[in-house]
Design a binder for these strands. Structure first.
Lengths: 156, 156
DNA sequence: CTTAGTGCAAACCGTTTGCAAATGC
DNA sequence: GCATTTGCAAACGGTTTGCACTAAG
C-alpha cells in the first residue's frame, strides 16, 4: 500500500543521498498506521512486533528523518519525553495535556496564531516554530476525582 | 538584608515543619540577587563562589522549595534543561526563545490568556499552568547572520 | 566497490534518590 | 533526642554516539 507519504519519504532519501532500506520502509509503514502520538519507544515496540530484528537506534534515527521531511512533528511531553505525531496534511495545532493521565487534547485557535505573529514582529524575532501547552486535569480525570471524593465521604 | 521574599520562605519552612539552615539562607540570597533565568547548575556555581562547601543536591532541592512557596517559576528551556526565574511580584509571562544564542525574551498578551480560558472551558479542562514558547532567531542573531553573509559575499 | 545503514553497547547529561553523618529545633 | 538536612556517590531514563559489521546503490 503506497501512500503519498511513502513518496515524500523516498524523495527525501534520494535528495539527501540516503538509502532506502527494508527497516526504514517498515518503520514508515508502522508509523503511518499509528494514531495520535507515539514515543520512539512506543514505535520501537510496534515495529519489533512485526520484525524483532530491528533495533531501537534505527527507529530513533528514522523518526529524525521523518521530522526532516515533514512527515512527523516532534513534541515535548509533560515529563520531558518526546512524542511524535503525523505532520503531513495535518493542520497545525497545540495541546492541552492532562498531568494526571497524560491525555493529549489538540486545539487550534486562529486568533492566537495571529497574535503570536504580532508579538514576534514587535521584537524583530524570526519565529521558526512554537510550543503552546496548557497543563491541567482533563474532564475524565475530574469526573473520576469527584467520584472518589464522594465514595470517601459516604464511606466515613 | 531581609526582603519580603525571606519572610515568605521562612513561613513556608515553618508551615511545612522544615528547618531553616545556613545553606538555605545563602541559596535564597544568591537566587534573589540573580536576574532573568538561572539553571540549577548556574545557581550552584554562584552559591559555590560564596561557600564552596555547599553541594549541588542542596541547591537543587532548595529550588524545589522556592517553587513550592511561589518564589520561583520553573520553565523548560529549549534543550530540555530547566531554568528558574523569580515569580514573586513578577507578572506572568511567556517566552520567545532564540535557538541560536539561547536568549529569552519575555512577552505577555492579555488576549491570548483570555483565549486560553475559552479553549479550556470548551473541553471541560481544568488548567493548572501553561507553557507558551515561540522558538526562532532573535534580532541580534539575525543581524549577525546578515553581517556574516555580507562578509562572505565580498570576500569571494 | 564505495558509501551509507544497522544494531549493539556504552556514553551522555541533567535530574533524582539512598544513605551515613551532621545539624536545627 | 528526634526529625530533618546535607553532600556524596550512584541510579535513573530518555537520548545520542562510536564502532565493527552488513547492505544498498
Amino acid at each position: 500500500m503506497e501512500r503519498e507519504e511513502n513518496k515524500i519519504f523516498y524523495e527525501h532519501l534520494k535528495r539527501a543521498h540516503l538509502k532506502r532500506t527494508s527497516q526504514r520502509d517498515l518503520i514508515l509503514d508502522v508509523f503511518l498506521d499509528t494514531e495520535d502520538h507515539v514515543s520512539s519507544e512506543d514505535l520501537y515496540h510496534l515495529v519489533k512486533a512485526k520484525d524483532p530484528t530491528v533495533g531501537f537506534t534505527t527507529v530513533y534515527r528514522t523518526l529524525k528523518l521523518f521530522k526532516e521531511c515533514g512527515l512527523a512533528r516532534e513534541l515535548e511531553f509533560h515529563d520531558g519525553r518526546m512524542l511524535y505525531e503525523h505532520e503531513y496534511k495535518h493542520k497545525h495545532h497545540d495541546h492541552l495535556i492532562c498531568t494526571q493521565c497524560g491525555a493529549l487534547i489538540e486545539f487550534y485557535n486562529e486568533e492566537i496564531e495571529r497574535l503570536q505573529d504580532t508579538i514576534v514582529r514587535r521584537y524583530g524575532f524570526k519565529p521558526l516554530h512554537h510550543s503552546h501547552r496548557i497543563f491541567g486535569i482533563c474532564a475524565n480525570c475530574q469526573k473520576a476525582e469527584k467520584a472518589a471524593q464522594k465514595a470517601k465521604a459516604s464511606g466515613q
